[in-house]
């Protein structure tokens, strides 16, 4: 059933001789990635740095990352899942339909060559970006590369890692897991955590209009989400906590200015490989931290009666 085979970035730096970027543009989106962790870094077992590594880029279009790569494979938009599934078959020397492979924009020969490179790597890594995870197939595209990489370990050492958006997305994921058991898409309305992406993930909840209030922390959905989700946020009481006025603040009923975490508020940020890094504030802020605001809201909420049938009798259903 696949799984997730990964490592911290230092392992990539110290060992990787084959680096694959899939559906991302690291040269523009993660400018320090090449020099610090991957392509150009000199590692313990890759002392020659760039010369000791091969980089493959898989994407639907040419980006500035292409000129850093040794091999660029341009896949047709929406065909990533087909390509990865084909690679899984080739890995096991199983038959594939050549004509249908060609529909992906890549030839069987190119894919066979990629599989051979993967199998023969000493230590391979596959970084996958939003070009894979946010396009047709979404979570199944991620599952496909995760499974491919897990299966490659029957031949050699291979790991994969998602390249996520900015901000402490990973931190939210990590904390949700230890407090609720689930990484995202969690619903607590029945008093205990339930998980069902698609049902409880934010975009889906907003698009269906399943919620009648919203508290937005460390995000700007008003700038990034589909229009029906934004319209719903404007319709319901929305509260935004943010150091600056965001697109979401403009459509919210309440905006509370908070101190910038990492600059004026302490905490922990989790790097994309889940390594926790301390945030050490360097400035004082006149504004409260997110934590303080939430704590104060919670103190007020806590004194309200619990939502039991008795409590319900006094509070008419909306």
């Amino acid at each position: 059933m696949g799984g997730k085979v990964t490592c911290t970035l230092g392992e990539v730096k110290n060992r990787a001789d084959l680096i694959i970027y899939w559906g991302g543009n690291p040269a523009d989106c993660h400018p320090l990635h090449f020099s610090r962790y991957t392509l150009n870094a000199k590692g313990k077992h890759v002392p020659q740095g760039r010369k000791g590594r091969t980089m493959v880029l898989v994407d639907v279009r040419e980006t500035p990352s292409v000129r850093f790569s040794d091999i660029f494979l341009q896949v047709r938009p929406g065909k990533d899942f087909e390509v990865v599934t084909t690679l899984r078959a080739l890995l096991k020397n199983r038959p594939v339909d050549e004509a249908r492979v060609a529909e992906t924009g890549l030839t069987l020969e190119q894919l066979q060559n990629l599989v051979d490179r993967m199998k023969n790597a000493r230590f391979g890594v596959l970084f996958f970006g939003m070009g894979l995870t946010m396009t047709r197939g979404k979570h199944m595209n991620s599952a496909a590369v995760l499974t491919l990489v897990a299966e490659l370990n029957a031949f050699t050492k291979f790991v994969s890692m998602p390249m996520r958006g900015h901000g402490n997305v990973t931190g939210a994921d990590v904390v949700m897991r230890w407090t609720t058991g689930f990484p995202f898409g969690v619903n607590l309305s029945r008093g205990y955590p339930r998980f069902n992406p698609g049902e409880f993930s934010t975009i889906d909840v907003l698009v269906r209009g399943d919620n009648d209030a919203a508290l937005i922390l460390g995000a700007d959905p008003g700038a990034t989400m589909p229009q029906p989700a934004i319209d719903h946020l404007a319709r319901i009481p929305t509260i935004v906590l943010d150091p600056k006025l965001t697109h979401t603040s403009r459509l919210a009923r309440v905006h509370i200015t908070t101190a910038t975490t990492g600059i004026s508020a302490p905490g922990t940020a989790y790097r994309m490989d889940e390594i926790p890094l301390p945030l050490k504030p360097i400035l004082k802020s006149p504004y409260p931290t997110d934590e303080e605001v939430i704590r104060r809201i919670y103190e007020k909420v806590k004194v309200k009666p619990a939502w039991s049938p008795a409590a319900y009798a006094k509070v008419p259903c909306a």
Binding site: G3, K4, V5, C7, L9, N14, A150
Partner: peptide, 14 residues
């Protein structure tokens, strides 16, 4: 490989 079920692996540098 024995179970054919899910597998997670996380190598921590050094």
């Amino acid at each position: 490989q024995l179970t054919g079920r899910k597998w997670g692996n996380l190598d921590v540098e050094n």
